[in-house]
C-alpha cells in the first residue's frame, strides 16, 4: 500500500507543481498574487474536455487548454494588472479576484454547475508492477510536468528572454535603464503562467474525468502553499515542493487521519515560512517583500 500511496502522492504533487509554478511566475517576477490562476486552471480543464470530446488527440487538447488559458491570462494582465503595476500589491490581487468571480460565473452559465464528466476514461490503460498500479494518464501527468518544468527552467535560465524576465524581477527600474521593456515582458509572464495553469487543468481534468466550475478553489490555495514551500524565486523549488506536499498529504491520509490533512499542509507552510522564508531552495527576497 505504501508504494501505491507514493504513486498517488506523486501524481497529486505533479499537479501542485504546475499550479504552484503558475503562481510563482507572476509572484516571483512581479510580486503579485494572481488569484484568478485557480480559475485559469479550471478553464484549461474545460477547454481540454471540449477538445477530447471533439475527438482531438491529447497533445492537441493540451495545447488548446494552454492557449485558451494563456489568452484569458493576457486579458487579466492588460485589465487587471497593467493599470495597477505601481499600486500596492493588494490592489492587483483584488482585481484578479474580480476576474476569478467573473470566470466562475461564466463557466457555470456555459457548462453548468454539475460535474462535467468524460463518458469513460479516455486514457484508461493501466500498468501494473508488483503491488503498484498506475494509469497511463498518471504517467502522462508526471511526464508532462517534468517536461514543462524543464522547458520553463530552460527559458528562464538560459535564454535572453529569461534573462530579461529575471532582470525585471530583480529591479524593474534598473531593467528599464538597461533597455529591457517591461510591458511586453509582464504580459509574457502572465501568459506563461496562464499556459501552465491551463496545462494542469487539462491533465487533471482528463485524469479525474469530472470537473466543475469550482474545482480551482481548494487546489489553488494548496498550490499557494506549495509555492511558498518551494520558494518563489526558484523554478526547481516547485518541482521538489509539489511532490513533497502531495506525498505529505497522501501519507497523512494513509497513516494519520484524513481530517488533519489540511492542518498539516498549512502548518508545514507556516513552519517553512518562519524557518526558511526564502523557500526550501532559497532565492526569494522576503526581507524586502513588496509593499502592501
Amino acid at each position: 500500500m505504501l508504494l501505491q500511496q507514493l504513486v498517488n502522492g506523486l501524481t497529486l504533487g505533479a499537479v501542485y507543481t504546475l499550479i504552484a509554478l503558475s503562481f510563482s511566475l507572476v509572484m516571483g517576477i512581479l510580486g503579485v498574487l494572481n488569484l484568478a490562476i485557480a480559475e485559469l486552471f479550471m478553464l484549461g480543464g474545460y477547454f481540454g474536455f471540449a477538445a477530447i470530446l471533439a475527438k482531438l488527440p491529447l497533445p492537441v487538447a493540451l495545447l488548446a487548454g494552454m492557449a485558451g488559458a494563456a489568452l484569458v491570462a493576457a486579458v487579466i494582465e492588460r485589465v487587471g494588472y497593467q493599470p495597477f503595476r505601481d499600486a500596492p500589491v493588494v490592489t492587483p490581487m483584488l482585481s484578479t479576484l474580480g476576474f476569478s468571480i467573473i470566470l466562475q460565473n461564466v463557466a457555470t452559465n456555459i457548462w453548468g454547475s454539475d460535474p462535467l464528466q468524460l463518458p469513460d476514461e479516455v486514457f484508461g490503460a493501466r500498468f501494473t508492477l508488483g503491488p503498484v498500479s498506475a494509469s497511463a494518464m498518471q504517467l502522462t501527468i508526471v511526464g508532462a510536468t517534468v517536461v514543462l518544468v524543464a522547458l520553463l527552467a530552460f527559458v528562464v535560465q538560459r535564454t535572453a528572454l529569461g534573462r530579461a524576465l529575471r532582470a525585471v524581477a530583480e529591479n524593474r527600474d534598473v531593467a528599464r535603464l538597461l533597455g529591457v521593456s517591461a510591458g511586453p515582458l509582464t504580459l509574457l509572464a502572465f501568459m506563461l503562467s496562464g499556459a501552465l495553469a491551463g496545462a494542469a487543468g487539462v491533465l487533471i481534468g482528463l485524469h479525474y474525468a469530472a470537473i466543475t466550475p469550482y474545482i480551482g478553489v481548494e487546489i489553488g490555495l494548496k498550490a499557494i502553499a506549495v509555492m511558498v514551500v518551494g520558494g518563489t524565486g526558484r523554478i526547481w523549488g516547485a518541482l521538489i515542493a509539489g511532490p513533497l506536499i502531495g506525498v505529505a498529504e497522501v501519507m497523512t491520509t494513509a497513516y494519520g487521519g484524513s481530517q488533519i490533512r489540511d492542518f498539516v499542509v498549512y502548518g508545514l507552510m507556516i513552519v517553512i515560512l518562519l524557518l526558511r522564508p526564502q523557500g526550501l531552495l532559497g532565492g526569494a527576497r522576503t526581507e524586502q517583500g513588496p509593499r502592501v
Partner: peptide
C-alpha cells in the same frame, strides 16, 4: 515579525485555513 508583505499575507492565509 520575521515576514514582510505578501509572505506575511500567505502565512496569515495558512493560519486562517488551520
Amino acid at each position: 515579525l520575521r515576514l514582510r508583505g505578501i509572505y506575511l499575507a500567505m502565512a496569515t492565509l495558512g493560519f486562517g485555513e488551520m
